[in-house]
């Protein structure tokens, strides 16, 4: 009997030592962010995702904010030199750096974001493709069904393929659900300039717009001011985070983005050994819609129906990124 116990104890000790010794030290994850995490917008959700990764997978994390593209390579190299095994870039503007660094550091894994599947990526790169336009389609439906003046506004910053696709999705939605309505759009040139955003919104409101689909980040507060200063009720939608607390009577819905979902999933895959791949972030897997408010209940119900249809791919949204298609 004693011999059995001794063998059992020895086995247990060996097993635990073996496990502790053989368990590979978990790679650490560093995230590079283009802006500040207190923006309650794109960077805040990135930071939230990072925290979620740490909480759910136990991977140690670090981050750098306000990393301009010109500095991102240097920042990434510093992380890699400090032993971080996973470097994540929150934003599509870092593609070129990932393409450059990934072959140079084959032992590390890189996570990047873009608007779709990119061909010929190195094998140690995970690509999160963000399909914003599918979410904006539903916002377009909400706008189409809620507008009383039949004039809908769209305010975006830089004329990027993502936003062009979102604008086209709004056009598609309006053409289908309210063909009499007109869509007025302005690209103000800066995602984070509230002054320009306000001026653009005021111009649109003066032209009769009563529902604005917002596609700027920090510029949102400017559009909010324009809505508050307007002589008749104006409804707004935003994206990334729910900003309705700024002025509850003006917000109709927000397209929420939960980057935690893609990042946790991708991290899990990396830990399981899959060092490269593609994850599509779309309504239902990363994008969510707040329940519509300040609109009639039947409109809210209809919109949520459309959302579910988009999630299940029963309702298809075209993706046109190179030019604006005004009428369908």
């Amino acid at each position: 009997m004693q011999r059995w116990i001794a063998w059992a104890v020895l086995l247990a000790v060996v097993a635990s030592v073996g496990v502790a010794g053989a368990a590979p030290s978990r790679p650490r994850l560093a995230m590079i962010l283009p802006g500040v995490i207190q923006d309650a917008d794109f960077n805040a959700v990135g930071y939230q995702a990072l925290k979620e990764v740490q909480a759910t997978t136990g991977v140690q994390t670090a981050h750098s904010e306000q990393v301009a593209v010109a500095d991102a390579e240097r920042v990434a190299r510093e992380y890699l030199a400090s032993g971080y095994g996973i470097v994540a870039f929150h934003g599509g503007q870092y593609l070129t750096i990932v393409q450059k660094l990934a072959p140079l550091f084959p032992d590390a894994v890189f996570i990047m974001e873009s608007s779709g599947q990119i061909p010929n990526l190195p094998p140690n790169v995970w690509n999160i493709g963000r399909k914003f336009h599918e979410g904006f389609y539903v916002l377009g439906v909400l706008a189409a069904l809620s507008t009383k003046t039949n004039r809908i506004g769209y305010v975006a910053g830089i004329r990027l393929p993502d936003f062009v696709a979102s604008l086209n999705a709004v056009f598609q939605a309006v053409a289908k659900y309210n063909p009499r309505a007109e869509v007025l759009y302005t690209f103000v040139g800066d995602q984070n300039d509230p002054v320009k955003a306000r001026q653009a919104a005021e111009s649109q409101i003066a032209a009769g717009v009563d529902f604005i689909v917002i596609s700027v980040n920090l510029g949102t507060v400017g559009i909010l001011e324009a809505a508050r200063a307007a002589r008749r009720p104006v409804l707004l939608t935003t994206f990334y985070t729910d900003k309705s607390s700024y002025a509850p009577q003006h917000f109709a819905a927000s397209l929420l983005s939960n980057f935690g979902k893609p990042y946790v999933e991708v991290t899990r895959q990396i830990l399981a050994g899959k060092r490269g791949g593609y994850y599509e972030m779309r309504p239902g897997s990363g994008f969510g819609l707040t329940p519509p408010r300040n609109v009639p209940p039947e409109v809210a119900r209809r919109v949520q129906q459309v959302w579910r249809a988009v999630v299940l791919r029963q309702e298809r949204v075209d993706e046109i990124t190179d030019r604006v298609v005004e009428r369908r």
């Binding site: 934003g91 503007q93 593609l95 070129t96 990119i118 830089i158 004329r159 990027l160 393929p161 040139g189």
Partner: peptide, 17 residues
């Protein structure tokens, strides 16, 4: 900005590149 989001834009990057 015009060039990097328009005629010369890299559609895969999805940014002003």
């Amino acid at each position: 900005e015009y060039l990097s989001t328009g005629p010369w834009n890299d559609p895969m990057a999805g940014e002003a590149i």
